[in-house]
Design a protein around this nucleic acid. Sequence first.
RNA 1: GCGGGGGUAGCCGAGCAGGACAAAGGCGCAGGACUUAAGAUCCUGUUCCGCAGGGAUACGUGGGUUCGAAUCCCACCCCCCGCACCA
Length: 949
Amino acid sequence: MVDYKEIESKWQRRWHEARIFDAEPVEGKKFFITVPYPYTSGPLHIGHGRTYTIGDIIARFKRLDGYNVLFPMAFHVTGTPILAIADSIARRDKAVIEQYRGYIAIYEERVDAILERFKDPKAVANFFSERISEDFNRMGYSIDWRRRFNTTEPMYNRFVEWQFKKLYDKGVIKKGKYPITYSIEDGSAVGEDDIEGGDTDKVSVIEHTAIKFGLEDGSYLIAATLRPETIFGVTNLWIRPDARYVRLRVCDEEWIVSREAGEKLRYQKAGADIEVLAEIAGSEIVNMRVKEPVSGREVPVLPANFVDPDVGTGVVYSVPAHAPYDYIAVEDLKRTGELPDTAIEPIKIIDIEGYDLPARDICIEMGIESQTDERLEDATQTIYKEEFYRGVLNERCGRFAGIKIADIKDEVKDWLRTQGVADVFYETSRKAVTRSGAKVVVAVLEDQWFIDYRAGWWKDRAHKLVSRMTFYPEKYRAYMHEIIDWLALRPCARKRGLGTRFPFDRNWIIESLSDSTIYMALYTIAHLLRDVPVESLTEAFFDYVFLGRGDVAAVARDTGVNEDLLNRIRAEFEYWYPNDLRHTAPPHLSNHLVFFLMHHAAIFPEDKLPRAITLNELMIREGKKMSKSRGNVIPLAKVSELYGVDLYRLYCAINADFGAVVNWREEDVDALRRKFNALVALFEDSIDEYALNESEFMHMDRWLMARFYRRLKESIERFRAFRLRDAAINMFFEMVNDVRYYEQRTDVARRRRMVRNLMDAWLVVLSPIIPHICEEIWHRLGHERFISLAKLPEVRTEFMDVRVEREEEYLISLVDDINEILHVARIERPKRIYVYTAEPWKYEILRAIKDVPARDKIKAAMQVRKDETTVEFVKRVMKSNIEYFELSEGAIMAREREYLERVFGCELVIDSEYDPGDKRRAALPLKPAIYVEFATQHSTAVPNDPASG
RNA sequence: GCGGGGGUAGCCGAGCAGGACAAAGGCGCAGGACUUAAGAUCCUGUUCCGCAGGGAUACGUGGGUUCGAAUCCCACCCCCCGCACCA
């Protein structure tokens, strides 16, 4: 048995020792490929591995294709997650500790000792970046590790600062108000990684419209809503009688909201001074009357227990025509007699096809009768969605009448605000707590820093860039254009987390997506910067290196970096940039990737802008998404042990095209393993063989050569077009099938020798996908150099031979035809098979009409040979779709007579005068007539004989 | 609702600048070879009908264009993703 693990580690070691993937600028074409650096908060799994593996396959292929390839890697450390993890471990958070015990155990036995160190975020980052880099080596990735860095290094900080200075100079760094998720208890912003379950169930900030309903005493009940347009249909307010409310002074107004909402408002109106004047029971408010602010109608305040004081303002305005909760609550009150039957009538304000009174209709349809029914949530969702997209405001809505809600919502909101009857209230999209259990609310930051992506010049440049880049799959190009259009303001700094200090306000830290946009440029020079003191990495330094600005001597003097080194750094950047290919996954399109494009477009000149983007879909396992919570992830670190690296790489390449999801199924993996082993065995079987001399080539040898070089040519073309899957299937499944067939037609010994003829070239094309085993066999064949550094085999067109392939096709179809006859006629033991090739006149006609359009074929044929049988013949030709090709059928059959006789176990007679079945006339060119003589059948039962049953 | 991607045999999944497509490849299943046996491997078959290489039906549904459609056009149904202030 082949010891794949041994082979893997042997070649990884030798590649490393020979430093063959360290890329230096040399003459000739270059190829600079990047794949996003991994975030080092934990181990990677086989799903992540797909993207890196494909990146490596491309890198390896490009090397074979004659490019000087740079494939670098670094580690992403910035942001809050790693910090949050370290904090959680420091405060002995059980779930996190369990999780990280598991993670460490993948790699190490001394779990506790390492976990202890994880109180320090740096230790987390270091541990995982170290382990991941080992994983990558174990996957056989052809990475130049000299250029490795991580995103918290001073060098990187300097680089990111430079980026922000460039953006600042372009006038796109701005400051303003911004709502964020926030923990009052911790006094700080919280991101999805700080929030309990935030990674799987994201918490976002939702802007509500807070509408002021006037009470008699001049104060307001504040009702928060997501549907301000429904104000026209309000019939009453809802208050929870057993909840506590507060009377607040907000600027010069008095507001009444739930106690919880009052607390939240303090963080949302940081500028205004807010004071709690009094606390009131909900029940005290019930039955008051308020003025609806748009038309001044008086509506009552009623009790409802579906109201949650911790959602919104704890005051809800009621639109029973369009909100299922409101409808049911009104019905409830009527039923219990608390409200007269006629007291509250729904006011319909939205016309929508298929509904009369939407809220009532859906409650009846779903059979909802109580305000505690959980399905009310579904009903609400359905109605909201339907009305938003399809609903039109009716005549009760004044200036907004006749317009679709989707088109008018924002205008209604703005109108209410400018009228002074509404304000903004932010709420989280769901109730959330931090990992330490503190409540998450929305706070408004007054001086948030943004990147403003709205500038016209910027979007233009980005669109132009996208238009001329290569995308594979192509569909993502259009999507990227759209994303660029959506992009607007984006917060780019936070108060906490690891990362680079914001250069214009050192209290802020640059957010972790904004610092990962143009870092590919740093790869080109990272190894050289190791010799440069951090203080020297000034704006002028990077301006010179990346933009060629300034004078070498002056920059050298100012930075203290000697001129030669400076020039060398500049030259290396010039050599490698632009990034020829960014390979990543679609979830990055709308964040990393669009920033990558935008920031390049803003900062670099045209000739340094990225050239191509390829994306591969994700990987699922046994038909299901992989996730921590499902517990169905396989760590990348285990691939070698569980499956073997080459097998995994092959599976990634062959299971799906980039645009499709890879389904990791054990059953399929096993099947592929068997095929893979068979291929290896095929190669091993030929290692000690001598290649067949070309002068000894017979028909089948030429056939195999023809097949091979045709496939080789196709595969190289597919590889170049990133169609790895097609290339892999062709060189793997299909080619192996050809060899199998060859062996069937010849014999094992000859196959061994012929495979030796093909092996060198075959191994080279397969090596990007399964590098370890190819390297092993390559060396066992006596090659001294690494296959990883080989060049693509020459496509030897002299062996590409259509005729030989056609001849074999002809033979295959003849065998099929005879088999079919034997089957249909139930002939078990044929005695003699007569084969009749078509008469010469049929060839003549076929030749004459091959290029004639279908409707004229008969006419043309009649000119050659005026006969009834000609018409019959042409009709059959047209029906059977015979394509004209000159083959000497008789010669082929004569040559293969022995084979055919062996296959059918009887004598074969070609073109005999003896034609008892009168078959010859049925013969078509390339489709000879067949007559089978057989011994009397004796075993055939008489089907309908009742006596025999 | 808008935008994008899909719906192919028992399953997965190619094909989709119209013709050789009953539809690649894989899995599964059945039969055979090899084997003491199992496994592996290799052959054959796998819509229905047919005692001579044929025919019928089929690529979500229904129409259309064409000598010819899984492939093009139209309508409809269903599934997935994005959009309803997160860019």
